[in-house]
Nucleic acid binder design. Structure first.
Lengths: 166, 166, 166, 166
DNA sequence: TTTT
DNA sequence: TTTT
């Protein structure tokens, strides 16, 4: 269908360390559990309430799997951009079941760590296992020709500047 | 949890007319089925492939329910902004089941029709039942104090209106 | 800065045909003018008002430039995903000026046509020059290893399905 | 124009404390300067490069102004959701100038603090002046009829609350 | 002017 | 079940 968009944006915390598995041909797949929550004040009682929503996030993108494996830990806060997919499976009684996941796959995916890196180190709290602190595009931390800004921002459109922008 | 975001953005087509139900206290709830799809060319065979994803959308917002009821029909193309929610229910065997939906509720929701209105009239294609063609914020088509431009809108922008944009 | 996001999402109409230029080394750059507008009812007078906002969109991505050149025309409705950039330049008096643009560059960009294709043909209305109707990711219409869904959706995670999803 | 979307999503850090002004009729307006940046590795030299982008954010929403005033400080990391607006003004020579801003106004705006609150206390670093740590919808921290979960929330989700998420 |  |  022309003109279709399927996008999910989450900011939340990992409920557990990432689970990394591999396909038969060796490609990694990372599974995350991410909690988002909203708080509001009950209009009747006036008390503060909170509702937490849990999301299944599946990462097929190899670079982002590597990021998840190396840097993410239970408790880490992340920014996620992916798409919604519902997958069909059979339970042990052979009945159809459906599971909806936020899938990070291909160019249209983002995984960014929002925690300061210093959190780690001592103790059991959330955070990262190590350094980290970068944000990674779809292709992971590697070099990416496309990821760079326009070649030399100032000069990048000099050839076009006969045009007065505003 | 502080600093949480849970947002879904869809552009797709309705697979069926909206279903409108009412709560016991009379508030409307609209259910939509929306299809998004992506197409790509198979690298091996070179042929064009397509994968369609179906989304359950539930509208609790009264104004947007009204919009859905009045203007949306099977086939209509819409822009949707809502949040992800997974709901638990019991099947007839008493087993726990889960259903994930895109929920439009509260201020943080958008439903916008993307079809030109002229589509209607002749033929069986998709589109709207009537006029339509506006985009509606969370509070629906009614007047909305918040929807207006900036408080000092006039002083900020009136002078722009005689400006030729490009 | 770790954990940074800079994203703009627009749905609007082209105010003019795209302008395509080329850098000295031959890469295309497309410039679009896109209008978005919001309508509201004036709370004082009760009359319906509308405010149009004009956006400068610059496409550095080659594939998306090709799409813009081939398929977009004045009046076409598009979905745009890019990032905000402010660029400095000197006016004829040598004074610093700034221009803010929505930039489509790299993997994190989307340009999707939202018009049905049939619009074209007769007359001067908006629409596309030709067929079109597809949506294009950052890499344009060409084959893209990443763009495909998971290999054979149904089987794609069979090796993982010892896990009961919910 | 029907079917229009104008949305900006930023995650970045405040370059300075918020500036709060008031309109003649006493409504607050907050101005923020927010930096986003992206990093990449130069393919030629192999060295790590960074490019920072500065954004002007203007908050007309009263509740969010209050949040900005009370909780945000230079260095704080925030999630912002607003819309793009270009405003015309005259410089001292009477020449037309344009300034593009990210505007938070009305229901379609979000300002969420992403820093852990503990940052504060000792030292000069960024962070908040006080507690904070909540995320605020368009209407700010006050009670909001719309912000609550679905009308029939209890029947939809109360049974979830004794559920162990994973 | 921020942040890493 | 939609759409192209």
């Amino acid at each position: 269908m022309a003109g279709s968009v399927n996008k999910v944006i989450l900011i939340g915390n990992l409920g557990a360390d990432p689970e990394i598995r591999r396909t038969q041909d060796g490609r990694p797949i990372a599974n995350l559990r991410i909690a988002t929550s909203e708080t509001w004040r009950d209009k009747a009682t006036g008390e503060r309430r909170e509702k937490t929503e849990w999301h299944r996030v599946v990462i097929f993108n190899e670079g982002l799997c590597r990021v998840a494996e190396q840097y993410l830990k239970k408790g880490a806060k992340v920014y996620i951009e992916g798409s919604l997919q519902t997958r069909k499976w059979q339970d042990q009684q052979g009945q159809d079941r459906y599971s909806t996941e936020v899938v990070l796959q291909g160019f249209n995916s983002v995984l960014t760590m929002l925690d300061g890196r210093g959190e780690g180190g001592g103790g059991g709290g959330g955070g990262y296992d190590q350094g980290g602190g970068d944000d990674f595009g779809a292709s992971g931390p590697g070099p990416s020709r496309e990821r760079r800004p326009a070649p030399a921002a100032s000069s990048r459109r000099d050839d076009l500047d006969d045009d007065i922008p505003f």
